[in-house]
Every structure is written in C-alpha cells, then in structure tokens.
Amino acid sequence: MSAVEITNISKAFNLGSSNQVDALTDINLSIASGEFVSLIGPSGCGKSTLLRLIANLIEPTSGNLVVNGKSAKQARLDQDYGMAFQQSGLFEWRTVAKNIELPLELKGWDKAKRQERALEMLELVKLSDFANHYPWQLSGGMQQRVAIARALAVHPSLLLMDEPFGALDEMTREHMQSELLSICRASGTTVVFVTHSIPEAVYLSNRVVVMSPRPGRVTEIVDVSIEGERNDATRDNAAFFKGITAVREALRGVEMSDHVRGIEDR
C-alpha cells in the first residue's frame, strides 16, 4: 500500500483576489510505505506547502490526497503522522520528557504509559540524561533531537519533516542524518523530507523529488540507487556522487527556466 497518494493536487493562496499565489499546480506523487522521499527545489517552489497539504494543515484548491489509505483529514485526526520543522518548536515551560509526552497526552494516554514511551524515545535520540531538563538548557542540535523524538512518540507510520536540520552545523547535521536513517530503518517509517541540501537529499532518500517554482510543480524525480545500508562510508560512494550529479542536473533544468536561489550545493 502506498503511504501517500497525491493526484492532480493544486494549491492557490488568496484564490480569486488580486494577490493570488499559485503555489502548486497539478502535482502527482505516489510515496510507497517505508520509502524515504526528499523534496528539493528553489525557495518558494512550494515544498512546505506540499508538506502542509499532506499534513492537512491546509486544504488543496483541487485534486485528491490519500494518506495511509484515508483522507488527509482522517489521517491527521488519527495522528497517523509526526511532524518536525526547522525550528524545534518545543514548549519552553515543559521539560524535555513532558514535551515528548505532549502528543500522547492529547491522545489520552495514561501517565505511566506516557512516561514509559517518553523514556523510550529519549533513549532512541540518546538524550536519556536530559529528561528533566528544560529545552532552553539544551543546545540547538539536542533540541532538534527532542523535536524528532516528539514527532516519533506516537510511533507514526509517516514522518513529515521540513528542513529539520537546517539550523544545525555540518557535523551535527551529518550525525543526525545517520541517526534519522537508523531510526526509520528500525521502525519502517515512511518519511517525506524537505531540504535545501543536495547531498543531504541524496544521502537520505530513495527518491529525490525536484521541484520548480512559479507555479510550483514537479520537474523530475531522481532515483537514488545506493546498495546496502547507508553509513558514513556512503558519502564516499560512487553511487552517492552519481545521485548528487543527477539531482544537480535536474536543478539546472530548473535554473534555466527560472532563477534559482537557496540551493546548497554541498
């Protein structure tokens, strides 16, 4: 079964008014269960918009969206997905553990079960010693790990991430990429991942969706075929570089048709 089925989706903001923005037009994308898909493209091409459509935080202008075999709204109501953004968005008045428990509280779990799950998640992101710290006592990378733990707390089958490592330094970032991959591999989680970094997209993904702006659409989908388990050695792998080249080529096509900004070629 496919995790996300996007058919002829379009999204226009301020529809009908003079400042109408056609953020997305006619998007078709099918994401298989357990797949890791990255969205890449110049700033303003509608990556975040597409993610928020899948999350049912906004409604499409037209088209059809199926998440986990149900409507996007039903999937949201069932908390079928977890979400993480560039800003960790932790609540400063809650401890790290309590932050992770938030989605469980809203789901009505009892206290003992919540605490158990929070500890389990903290172990996963290697922050067990910080359960009772407050977010502002943590570094940016640690906060981001807490946010990811929070997104994973309900054991969602789908993880939606919008530049989650964008604010991190290169070292932390690579480390987090490896951790994310091993977490998702262990749990079989499907991931839709927005990024500005070509190597990050290639390292993480089974497929990289290249998008172009005004109006936002999918120009190419690059298959990344790296054999075996991905680890730090992957970054020196020929298939890895081949993937980078392919995505870069695809983005060049975008560049020719429009001005490209905001792509990190590293």
Binding site: A55, R76, L77, M83, Q87, G89, F91, L106
Partner: peptide
C-alpha cells in the same frame, strides 16, 4: 507562535486543549 499552533493542529487538538497546553 503560529508554528506551535500548527503543531497543535497537527495533533488534532481541540480549541480547549490548545488553550490549556499552549
């Protein structure tokens, strides 16, 4: 912040839950 409100939305939290927790 709107990002936090969106987070609560993504949890399908009711208005009262959002009031109490955020």
């Amino acid at each position: 912040p709107s990002a936090s409100l969106e987070l609560m939305d993504s949890y399908a939290a009711s208005w009262w839950q959002t009031l109490r927790k955020l």
